[in-house]
Each structure stands twice: as structure tokens, then as C-alpha cells.
Design a protein around this nucleic acid. Structure first.
Lengths: 205, 205, 205, 205
DNA sequence: ATATAAGCGAGACGGTACGTCCGGTCTTGCG
DNA sequence: CGCAAGACCGGACGTACCGTCTCGCTTATAT
């Protein structure tokens, strides 16, 4: 059910939309943010690089952040499809996952756009919501599911709030990435998992 | 050895600087960021509100972020002076501190400028460095000192890397604040401390 | 042969130009120069008065002098169409013309812009060329044509260089106007004509 | 009796004035106007080039035009001392003088400042008055004196208004210089004198 | 002989305008 | 009607100078 109260925003006809232009715009945005950073990313520059009229961008996206978001997060991936590995060994599995996360965060190609989007959420709450809903929460939920399985397998204390447990794992990584205080390494990921999990082992009753 | 290659940047004479203008600029910046957010914060608006020529801002600060930074972080506080409480009970002390941090992060007056500065570090590495050096690290070092005391008192496993231990405490708080996924409460702070500390208790040898 | 070396100056598309804005800008420029003089004439003020973005001025004119020039000299007048009266009496005709010139030079509404443009030629040779070509020379050529007719009618010595003859008529007027040494009157115009023409009468062979 | 009504304009003490600075300022102004033209001549540039504080310029001159004026027209020359040659032959004498004038007007070193000052009179009537009084009129009066001598010698018609006669000589030269329509040559000067003088010869009674 | 006050170099200050860049809207002509 | 192109109004950018205003520092009387 779409909202009938808002006055006609002249919604364009999506069925006539040019896929060609859409792709060119998203590609151009990614290229430019990689070359010069988000601060110098301009709607005009995107349009020029993509060989596209400015209006074609304004017609389909509300902001340059939204363009970049779509460029980074291709729609249509099923949130439920994200699944953490489950070998039965929660510690090993988490180390595998956090090491992969470390690798992603260290990937130079992803760095600029990711930081840009993260930063832009401070000014653009709508973007923040989208980022949380489409990217962040699905991943966090996958952590919760994996931890619940460990709980049920008796590897994690049943009294523990899994939401917080997950933040104990993810928070430190995110903190280092955001503040650039110290390097993000596999060893770091391992230590975080070890420390966090030590606090979650079932207490001897 | 200073770089002899760069041409003279014509450093202004700080001794002739007008303290009156400096204060007016910092106050105006804080007011405006509170009223309209960082995105709408303008050098021209700051100058106008402060009753000051634009050049007077450009003369002393390299960017509006730098102005805001100085407005938020009055220089001249001794980093070593930051000290966490030490009642002998590490758990209680950390809960006290993290609850206070939660209160700070929930303070509406600090929210806008803090988020703005944090976000701006993505575009402005120099600002990031300053923020880390002048604000973040001094606080983190205080954590390290308090945790070391606990270690020496036998309340924390001597094998633990205190730097990572601290990130286990601080990271989750920062993550929630940054992502706005769930509310930051005292209860949350307590649980984080409990969980993290459980992982650090000395192992029975 | 056009110069192939200069990089593309990105010439705007004149067919899309807004005639509405063009008129508003020219009118505003004339109003403002009349009110406050050329020294206080500002691109920003013209734009504001005309309700136009500054870029719209910079897009179509290279300087405020060029704006004023176009405001004063509407393009598209045929240079050949300027014709001095010819009653058969060269003295009477020249007096008629110079008296009219005196009236023009004394016209307060024309004074400010005309002086401004004349003065600006000292700094802006391109403007000087335009002024000479579009305004001055067509008028001087009309003088030459009328004097040639008089020559052919035996009223002016056939040996005389008409270009210089004309300057003997026009130069004194221009000199008084420019230097404001003495008032420009009809009597003055008459005397100049009388004196100058006395030197051009055919010599008794 | 000095005017007691005007509020104290804080006239500086001329006796303490630094001749060193005065010369440096005038020299710098002349140099700069020659290098870059009047439009780019700034008080700040003069001060910097002269190694002088800006205030020292503002203290002694009301405008950059006034500086340039003094640089071009060293005070203290007696207006009455200007005298045209008198060999008894008015035609030859005038040709000598106008040829010298042509040479001056063609002198590249004098061109920029002279044009600048002439142009500036359009915006600065006070400058115009000074220029007329100190430079122009003394010269024109010398012409009048020489022409009167010629009149008394019977070489010029006694009925002629000498003021206008002089303008017939000077106006054409000035017109060509100002409009840059055709080159200023000795031949041109000669022709102007011939033509003008032909109109002034005594009429056979 | 020494205060005292002026001119002076320097340059920070509150401003105004510059010429440029870009945002977001609107218009034109093509497919 | 979507689209490329780009002119348009508006607003902020960072720079250049304006003319005024302090600062210390000579330097030249006027005690």
C-alpha cells in the first residue's frame, strides 16, 4: 500500500527507465569516488563522466549519497541468504568470518566509498536507515543466528544477550577501522574472538 | 628537519591575534551547527554571525571542520590529567565510566558537533589525526592505565592485551552510537562491562 | 583561419539564450551606472537588480564594461545609415550637426555611461576597438562623406585631407567635453565650425 | 584663516614627513603602472614594492590616482614658466610645439600613466580639477600668450577668440591620441597647424 | 638628557566584490 | 516520455584589496 496522502511527486515511469544510463551513472560514481574522494564527488561530474543529463540523476536518486549507496549495494540480494559458516566450532567459525571482515575493511577499493557512506549518515538520516536496514542488520542477524546455534549446542552461556554478544565481536573491529588508531590484522580478529568468547562460555552451574 | 621545499605559507603573526574574534567565531560555529547541522554550516554564516571578516577565519583555520574542532576541544588540557576512578573494584569503576560515556553520547547538545567531526574525518585525514591525538588517545590511555592497575591487583588476567581489552569495552558503545541500531542505556553499558570482564578474569592456573 | 592552439573556451549555446535575462541585465546596468557611477557599478549589483545569477552575466559578457557597452549601443544598426544633413550649405549643416552633438554631450542621462566607457578604453583595449568600430568610425565616415560632397560642390578646397578636416571640427568639442575646461554651448559649436571652415575654403587660384 | 567648522581631520605634521618614503612610494607607483597598468595598481602593491606601511600612503594621499598624479607631476614648477618658443613665425613655432607634443604622446613610458590619469578623471572629479589646474591650463595659457603675440604682430586675425583657436590646434591631436584611430605623426601635426592657421589669418579689410 | 609624541613598517581586522563551482530546476530538441 | 544537453537562479567558495586600526620601533623636538 503506497502512501496516498503526499501530493503528486510526479513519480517517473520506471518501466521506461534506461538501464544503460543507470549503469553508467553508478559506474561513474564509483570511479570518481575512488579517484578523488567523496568530498569532490559532484552530481555534475557524475553526469559528465556517465555521458548523462543531470536531470536523469535527479529523476531517480535523491542525493549523491543515494547514488553511491546503490552503486555499492546492488539491490535484490536476499537478506536471509547471508549465512555465517557453521562447522560446529563457534570460535573457529567466528575467526573465519572476522578475518574476512578485516580483509574487506582493508580493501583499498572498498575503503573510500564505505567510509563516505558511513560518514554521510551523520548528515543524512534517511541514508543511515537504508544502510542499516539493507546492509548492516542482515549481517548482524546472521551473527545472531550463528550464536544462537552455538548457544543451543551448549558452547555459549544461555543467559547471554546475543545482540550484545555480537556487538562485542563487531564493535572492536569497527572502532579500529573508524578511528584508524591501530592496524586491522587477522591476529587482531583472532584475539577479539578469543577474548569475547571467553566471556560467553557456559558457567559451571 | 622541516621541509625546506614548500614555498612560504606566510604564517600570520599569532601575537597580534584578536582573542575577541577567536571566541566569537568558535561560539558562532557551535551555535550554528546546533541550529542547522554541519551540512548547512558555512564559513560565510560563521563570519556573519560572529561579526567577522571571512579572511579572519581563513587566516587561522584551514577548514570549517578545524573551527568546529577547536570549538569542541578547547586546547590546553593535559592529556595525562584524564584519569578513570579507582575504587579497587574494576567492574564497578568501568560501569561508572561507561555509564557516563553513555550519558555524554546521548546529550543532544554534543551530538551534532561530535557526529559532524567524526564524519568529517572520512574526508579530512588531518582532522582525524588531530581528533585521535588530542581527544581519543588520551582517553584510551586512561583506560589502559586503569586496566593495568586491575591487572596488578589480580583482577584481570596478566596475559591479556590491554589495548584490545579496552576496545572490547569501548567498541560496542561506539558501534551503537554510530549505527543508531539500538538505544544506548546504562543497562547496556553494565552488560557490556560484565561480558567483557568475564573474559578477562584470571584463569585458574 | 581560426587559432587552433587555444583550448576550447566552451562557448555557450546562443540559441538557448534568455532574451528576458539579457534585457534585464542591460537595463539594470544602465540604471545603476546612472544612480551611482561606473566606479560603484558591480557585477553583483547588476545581477541582483536584474534578478539574475552572476554566472548568466559572466557567461555572455567578458566584463562590466562590455555589458555597459551593449546597453548603450544596441547592436544591429547599420553604420552606413548614419548620414549628415545636406542642404547644400556645408557651414549651416555642420553647425546643425555639432549643435546636436553638443546637446548630446550635455545630456545628463548619457553623460555617466559615455564617460565611463571612454575612460575604460584606457584599461581595456578590446573595448576601445569595439567602441571605435561600432560607434566612432561610422560617425566620422559620415562626416567624411558630407565633406566630400562639399568638396565636389566647390565649397571646400580639393587639396584638403578630409580626415584631418573632420578632426578639426570634432576634436575641439571632444577636448572640451573630456577636460571640462569650459562649457559646451551652441555658440561654441558655431565658432568652431566658422573657424575650421575658414581654413578650408578653396584658395583663389 | 583656516576653516574652523570642519571637525578635526587630524592633519599629519608635514614637517616630520619622511622624504625617503615619499620617493619610494612615487617610484613604486610609476614602476607598477608601467608594468601592469592602472587597473592592477593597488595601494597594497605600492606599499609592498616601496617597503612602506599602507597607512603611510593613506596618510598623505587620498587615492591611488593622487599618488600617480604626484608621481607624474612633480609639484613646484611655476605655471608661468611654461613658454612656447617665439621666433616671430607663428606657424613654424606651433609646428615645433605640436611635433614635440606628438613625440610625448608617443612615448611609451608616459603612455600608461597619462592615459590612466586621464581616464580616472571620469570617476574622480577632484583629480580632474587638479589635472586641469596644474598641468593642462598652464600649457593652454602658454598657447594663448603665444597666439596673442601673433595677433599683435598681425599674423592672426584680431577678432578671433584665442581660446577657441588653441582648441582647434590641440583638440585634433588629443582626439587621435584618445581614440587611437590613426597614428600621431609629425606630418599630422604640421597639417593641423596649417589648416587651423589658414582659418585665422587676418582678413583683408 | 630625557620624556613624549609623531611618523613609520607591519599587518590583523571588518568588509565588499571578485570570478568560479555546483546545486537543483527548467527548457529544448531528439529518439 | 525518457533522455542528453545545458541555460538559468541562487548561494557558497576561497582570494584580493579596501580603508581602519593597533602594535612596537625609531627619531626629533620640547621640556
Amino acid at each position: 500500500m503506497t502512501d496516498p496522502s503526499t501530493p503528486p511527486p510526479k513519480a517517473p515511469d520506471a518501466s521506461r527507465r534506461s538501464e544503460r544510463s543507470r549503469r553508467a551513472i553508478l559506474d561513474a560514481a564509483l570511479e570518481l569516488v575512488g579517484e578523488s574522494g567523496f568530498a569532490k564527488l559532484t552530481i555534475e561530474a557524475i553526469a559528465a563522466r556517465a555521458g548523462v543529463g543531470k536531470q536523469t540523476i535527479y529523476r531517480w536518486w535523491p542525493s549523491k549519497a543515494a547514488v553511491l549507496f546503490e552503486a555499492c549495494v546492488p539491490e535484490g540480494i536476499d537478506p536471509a541468504s547471508i549465512e555465517l559458516p557453521d562447522t560446529g566450532d563457534i570460535v573457529a567459525d567466528l575467526k573465519t568470518v572476522l578475518r574476512a571482515t578485516v580483509d574487506d575493511l582493508n580493501d583499498a577499493r572498498l575503503d573510500a566509498p564505505t567510509r563516505a557512506l558511513t560518514a554521510e549518515t551523520a548528515n543524512d538520516p534517511e541514508l543511515g536507515r537504508a544502510l542499516t536496514e539493507k546492509v548492516l542488520e542482515p549481517q548482524l542477524q546472521a551473527y545472531v543466528r550463528r550464536l544462537r546455534a552455538a548457544q543451543e549446542a551448549g558452547q555459549v552461556d544461555p543467559d547471554i544477550d546475543l545482540r550484545i554478544a555480537l556487538e562485542l565481536l563487531v564493535g572492536p573491529l569497527f572502532h579500529r577501522w573508524q578511528t584508524r588508531t591501530l592496524p586491522l590484522t587477522h591476529a587482531y580478529a583472532d584475539t577479539v574472538v578469543d577474548l569475547a568468547l571467553r566471556g560467553m562460555t557456559p558457567r559451571p552451574s
